[in-house]
Design a protein around this nucleic acid. Sequence first.
DNA 1: TTATGTGCAAAACATTTGCAGGAGT
DNA 2: ACTCCTGCAAATGTTTTGCACATAA
Lengths: 135, 135
Amino acid sequence: MDQLPNMRLTTQRQIILEELAKVTSHPTANEVYDMVRQRLPRIGLGTVYRNLELMAESGLILKLEVGGTQKRFDATISPHYHIRCIQCSKVDDIEIPVQQHINALAGAVCDYLILGHHIEFSGICDDCAQKKTEH
Amino acid sequence: MDQLPNMRLTTQRQIILEELAKVTSHPTANEVYDMVRQRLPRIGLGTVYRNLELMAESGLILKLEVGGTQKRFDATISPHYHIRCIQCSKVDDIEIPVQQHINALAGAVCDYLILGHHIEFSGICDDCAQKKTEH
DNA sequence: TTATGTGCAAAACATTTGCAGGAGT
DNA sequence: ACTCCTGCAAATGTTTTGCACATAA
């Protein structure tokens, strides 16, 4: 719940954050590892996992628990939803301003204390749709 | 996309489906395995996974790709959303009739072919909220 | 100086798969 | 009979963890 605990500023953390900020995709931990390794060849995969987890906890980045087998990470922390292509598994952002509204609707029909929600759309991206038409 | 392919009716499949239909929780594959094993002690975990996957593909049951480390399964296939307690990880159903509306909004702002969506709420369930107050 | 972080390798999980024998149709 | 299915165990893929050394504060 606190912002930045006693977290030291290490080269590894700086570079992980920089590399994540460079891309608009939503890379998996392993993809971040590959990106970072180009600048820090000796970094360990465990370090990448540990730091992505810490940064997500402290709210510096977003950890997306979308479908599929791997978690994904996102340097954009403004509230938004995601859409995943069922063909190529790519994940894109999508913005529709209905958060408040949906939380209110949910609060009305169940006895949980609602903290938030996430919408994951599934569909077929432009690229994959074209490939289908091509053949 | 087809309903039931050339799927044989085996004891294992029958019992997996029966046990899943008995509960309103959203058990993980391993929890289904435990339930089924009480009636079929020699069933293999692989068989449970294979069949849950097949049934989900053919639309007999729902496979929930909610957050957390394990997938969950649900015998209720009518469209509904889910809410997960951040304390105890329990998953409940939640029904708010906004599917069409949300798909339309999303379709308007992105160039995917929208196939559907799922909303996962997070919150604190009644039980956990009470435990907090108790102490 | 000392608590925290790192690299490395092993462990822990969840899930999938290969295969030889078994069961539904 | 002829597939398809199962149990078992091993393999795979992702994430976590233990530990000795390194490094930011």
